[in-house]
Simulated assay, not measured.
Amino acid sequence: MKTFLTCSDKTKIESPQFLKQSLGAIKKANRQHSKKRKGSANRERARLNLVRKHS
């Protein structure tokens, strides 16, 4: 892992891994989206949920 920040007293802070932390939720949302019928309101709702998880 790369060092994100090194302080003047040589303290190193690791890079935050936001994508890694939310990968499980993104995978679940993607599976839910893929199981919905194309063109349905539920699919659109699942798509918006997936977009929300990505950002």
Rank of each mutant, 00 (worst) to 15 (best):
M1T: 15
M1E: 14
K2T: 11
F4L: 11
L5S: 09
L5D: 02
L5M: 14
T6R: 15
C7Q: 09
S8T: 11
S8A: 14
D9M: 04
D9Y: 01
D9H: 07
K12F: 00
I13G: 01
I13A: 05
I13R: 03
S15D: 13
S15T: 07
P16Y: 05
P16K: 02
Q17N: 12
F18R: 08
F18C: 05
L19T: 03
L19C: 10
L19P: 04
K20G: 14
K20F: 07
Q21C: 07
Q21D: 10
S22R: 14
S22F: 07
L23Y: 12
L23N: 09
L23P: 00
G24K: 12
G24L: 05
G24Q: 03
A25S: 11
A25G: 10
A25M: 07
I26E: 01
K27D: 12
K27F: 11
K28F: 02
K28M: 08
K28Y: 02
A29Y: 01
A29F: 00
A29W: 02
N30G: 14
N30D: 15
R31S: 06
Q32I: 06
Q32S: 10
H33C: 10
H33I: 09
S34A: 09
S34L: 06
K35S: 08
K35V: 00
R37I: 04
R37S: 09
R37H: 07
K38F: 10
G39W: 01
S40D: 04
N42M: 12
N42P: 00
R43A: 03
R43L: 03
E44P: 01
R45N: 14
R45H: 14
A46F: 02
R47C: 03
L48H: 06
N49D: 08
L50Q: 02
L50E: 01
R52V: 02
R52W: 04
R52Q: 09
H54F: 11
H54W: 06
